[in-house]
């Protein structure tokens, strides 16, 4: 296999934010003492007067972001997903979501690929929490290119947005000229036997799995569902009709994330046999990201094995 270019989605966040900062003076950024890690520090370096380090106080940061938005700014607020969304859930719900304020919550270090820090820092429930807030757009980009596109789309969207970024470098799967639209999924590989709906770093795993499945004579369709909310229901139903078997793959709990969103859609519109691949209602643990993804069967091999078993069963 040739060497694939790898870069973390959080780097896409930082560079897109710097670009946007030059274009729009109303864009401001906030962080909670993790600017170096979330990459909001890139914005801080470029526009120190429009950056607010709130210190280790995530709830306060979210409400301050709400106030900035109420005064006409476009705030991007960052921390690790665990604290941005977990610690500050109620502030996001009441200060940002309820008044539908134009705040962009950009959380890094989501999922088990955080690695060595372990379960306390591996947020597997963020998509679930954010998806439940009325009016919140929820995105989980697959690579550096899509991450940048999500940030740009978020800035153009009027209303609250949650974007989930990862810590670990992941393969670049999209071309430089990739056209992204909020709420639109995209078919990355056509197939007829099974549909694999995925997002985040699991897009690369799913594409790898699809090649392995092809060698076994299973023709998998791979669809990137970056926007979990609003879900591209038309595309989800279309592929379910086409293959009759749907698997979701995500670096998130199987409860409440992409798998749940797809299941909710299909059970109402087109009941279809389904299997949810993700973290199966357990906490993560310490270890190198790659080894954890392997153990929790979210790498290409793990996805391949689970999809194959589902298709055969």
């Amino acid at each position: 296999m040739s060497e694939v270019k790898k870069i973390a989605t959080r780097d896409g966040y930082g560079s897109a934010l710097v670009e946007l900062g030059a274009e729009n003076p109303n864009i401001v950024a906030l962080d909670a003492d993790l600017a170096g890690s979330t990459k909001s520090g890139m914005f801080k370096k470029a526009y120190p007067d429009r950056f607010f380090n709130c210190g280790i106080a995530e709830g306060n940061m979210m409400s301050i972001a709400a106030g900035l938005a109420a005064a006409g700014m476009i705030p991007f607020a960052s921390s690790f997903a665990m604290f941005a969304v977990g610690r500050a859930y109620e502030q996001i719900r009441n200060s940002i979501g309820y008044p539908h304020l134009n705040v962009k919550i950009c959380a890094s270090h989501a999922g088990i690929s955080v690695g060595e820090d372990g379960a306390s820092h591996q947020c597997l429930e963020d998509i679930e929490l954010m998806r439940g807030i009325p009016g919140m757009v929820v995105m989980c980009p697959a690579d550096y290119i899509e991450a940048k596109a999500c940030v740009r789309a978020a800035a153009e969207h009027d209303g609250p947005v949650y974007i989930r970024f990862g810590r670990s470098p992941v393969p670049v799967v999209f071309p430089e000229d990739y056209k992204f639209e909020i709420g639109k999924g995209n078919v990355l590989r056509e197939g007829k036997d099974v549909s694999i709906l995925t997002n985040g770093l699991c897009v690369a795993s799913s594409l790898e799995a699809a090649e392995m499945l092809a060698k076994d004579g299973i023709d998998a369709e791979v669809i990137n569902i970056c926007t979990v909310k609003p879900l591209d229901e038309e595309l989800v139903v279309k592929t379910a009709v086409k293959t009759g078997k749907v698997v979701t793959v995500e670096e998130h709990s199987i409860i409440g994330g992409l798998g749940s969103a797809v299941a909710e859609c299909l059970s109402e519109k087109r009941p279809t046999r389904m299997y949810r691949i993700g973290v199966r209602d357990v906490f993560g643990e310490s270890g190198p990201a790659g080894e954890l993804l392997h153990k929790y069967m979210l790498d290409g091999e793990g996805v391949y094995k689970q999809v194959k078993e589902f298709v055969k069963g």
Partner: peptide, 12 residues
């Protein structure tokens, strides 16, 4: 939460 929001409005 209100005081934090007020702080954000003042910061803006």
């Amino acid at each position: 939460q209100g005081i934090s929001c007020a702080v954000g409005i003042a910061a803006a």
